[in-house]
Design a protein around this nucleic acid. Structure first.
Lengths: 137, 137
DNA sequence: AATGTAAATGCAATAAAGTTGCGTTTGCGC
DNA sequence: GCGCAAACGCAACTTTATTGCATTTACATT
């Protein structure tokens, strides 16, 4: 299925801005910050970019993660999520060298024993360290 | 050991601002946001508060965590950490009702199997859901 | 293919969060 | 009590994100 159709299936219009963004997000398993995408699409208004990302998140096309520096990042959901209720329970790896954020789709979130009284909705596991390129350098 | 001494042992001066902040952080196992502390100490300058928190973090008195909403929070280190290199590898619980962030000192960070090529420095495990009070309501 | 309309965009203004510089004040070692 | 480095308060500024509104555009319908 092509990107336009994927967007339309979520009830959103397949605009150029949206196609550009989703194409970049789909090109790898990285989570992108607003600033990075803004630099990539210098002709797109920053507000539009904020709205594209928020709309995608609410539609369940992308998931939002905060990296170790507190920067908000967005990555394509591998399996389309039911609306805003994401099933993105995979582990993320944040490189302290290049600051890239990798979605480790194949690494499931580990089980954690929680004290009584807490009702758990989900777990975010964020690993930080150095990626292959950065630990080589 | 009293709070003033604890602060002085880290090479910092025991000022009223610092004593106020550390007293609140020590009163429970919650991680506080800048805005919350600012509201608590309305006479303290916001910049001073930023600096108190940063100095404490660099001194290893408190650790910094980003909550699920991307808000930066600070909590007292139970065991004094060696400088800025924190050993706060415990699990945090973020309530989606009251937005409180609990340090679960007794819940160790789980082991995660990481693909080859990544060099791991640490793991942040952030659980979200509802705390006792909020799930009752 | 033309058209109507709700959705999306661009721009300006504003808000929230964090940082920097600098002159004044203060903790604390002497 | 004195001196001085450290800490503080204030102002200005930067970055990140949000809101309102007028204009434009995707696309369902004819």
């Amino acid at each position: 299925m092509d990107l336009s159709t994927q967007i339309r299936e979520k009830g959103l219009k397949a605009t150029p801005s949206r196609l550009n963004v989703i194409q970049v997000l789909g090109s790898n398993h990285l989570a992108y910050a607003h600033a990075e995408l803004e630099a990539l699409f210098s002709d797109m208004d920053r507000v539009t970019l904020y709205r594209v990302l928020n709309d995608f998140e609410e539609a369940g096309l992308v998931h939002k993660i905060i990296d170790v520096d507190g920067v908000t990042r967005f990555a394509l959901c591998k399996h389309s999520c039911p609306g805003a209720h994401h099933a993105d329970e995979h582990v993320h790896f944040n490189c302290r060298g290049c600051h890239k954020m990798f979605c480790l789709e194949n690494v499931p979130a580990p089980n954690v024993k929680i004290p009584l009284g807490f009702k758990v909705s989900g777990v975010q596991t964020l690993i930080y360290g150095y990626c292959k390129s950065c630990s080589a350098a």
